[in-house]
Simulated assay, not measured.
Amino acid sequence: MSKILAVANQKGGVAKTTTVVSLGAALADMGLSVLVVDLDPQGCLTFSLGHDPDKLTISVHDVLLGEGAIADALLDTEDKVSLLPATIDLAGAEALLLMRPGREYALKRALKTVEGDYDVIIVDCPPSLGVLTLNGLTAADEVIVPLQCETLAHRGVGQLLRTVTEVQQITNPDLQLLGALPTLYDSRTTHSRDVLADVSDRYDLPVLSPAIPRTVKFAEASASGVSVLGGRKNKGSAAYRELSENLWKHWNGGADLVTIEAV
């Protein structure tokens, strides 16, 4: 059975897609078979992995509506991960799904057909708390919350945590919240540390280690259609490699996730 991880935060600009791309590439480099799923109608994950959403004829939109097989929509990437891409059509799928019974389970049903083919499946949820994000959380075993280390970044975290709780109560009782992943982190500033301390105290939420540093390498990698792991070694790729190793030890051996105890 695949391990399914959702990456969710309704706030944009928190390095959610960067986390999916980088984690997927790091796990693939460890020899694991990885599928990443783009649930954002903007197609940022699809673009970041070197594919033009405007040129695709079949995508996750067709899969969610039962109009196409997931195997027919999958794309290869230079980072050795398989991609279930998104297009702008997905915005329309959200409205159509709302009219269907069992709408929260559409992605879960689709992934059942390929679960045995992958060690890890990572779902990039859109920056909203609509039916697409509910699909991602319902299909997942675990969820992490990327959190930008800036003052206003944690606004809305409480709302997301309430959504996770509701999903656990209604559609996915086995969903586990792994914690917040600090992103765009600058260890030289007390401001970044203060934000993490505030989130940890206010929401009683584990803060995953390592914090992902702020670096221009992420933007450069996204523009070139590959992950940050594809170029020279840098602090961003090193952080995601460490995080992927922590996650795999947790999944494969039951080890406790490494967290930041004091920030």
Rank of each mutant, 00 (worst) to 15 (best):
156 G>R: 01
226 V>F: 03
195 V>K: 01
223 A>P: 09
185 Y>S: 04
176 Q>M: 12
204 D>W: 11
200 S>F: 04
187 S>F: 10
205 L>G: 00
230 G>D: 00
167 V>H: 02
169 Q>L: 12
151 T>V: 14
234 N>M: 02
220 E>R: 12
220 E>V: 14
189 T>M: 08
147 L>F: 10
206 P>A: 09
236 G>W: 05
199 V>D: 00
196 L>D: 02
232 R>D: 00
154 H>S: 13
167 V>G: 06
161 L>T: 01
210 P>T: 03
189 T>I: 02
201 D>N: 15
184 L>S: 07
193 R>Q: 12
151 T>H: 13
212 I>Q: 12
161 L>C: 08
167 V>K: 01
163 T>D: 02
166 E>Q: 14
196 L>M: 14
159 Q>K: 15
212 I>Y: 05
228 V>L: 09
209 S>P: 06
227 S>T: 14
161 L>W: 12
219 A>R: 11
159 Q>H: 14
232 R>L: 00
191 H>G: 04
174 D>P: 07
187 S>D: 09
163 T>I: 11
185 Y>D: 05
225 G>W: 04
233 K>C: 04
228 V>S: 09
225 G>N: 09
190 T>H: 14
196 L>F: 07
180 A>Y: 07
226 V>D: 05
174 D>Q: 15
171 T>L: 00
191 H>P: 05
184 L>N: 06
236 G>Y: 05
186 D>C: 09
174 D>L: 15
220 E>C: 09
145 V>R: 05
183 T>L: 08
144 I>S: 06
237 S>V: 01
152 L>W: 13
158 G>R: 06
217 K>F: 11
222 S>N: 13
213 P>T: 04
160 L>H: 01
182 P>Y: 02
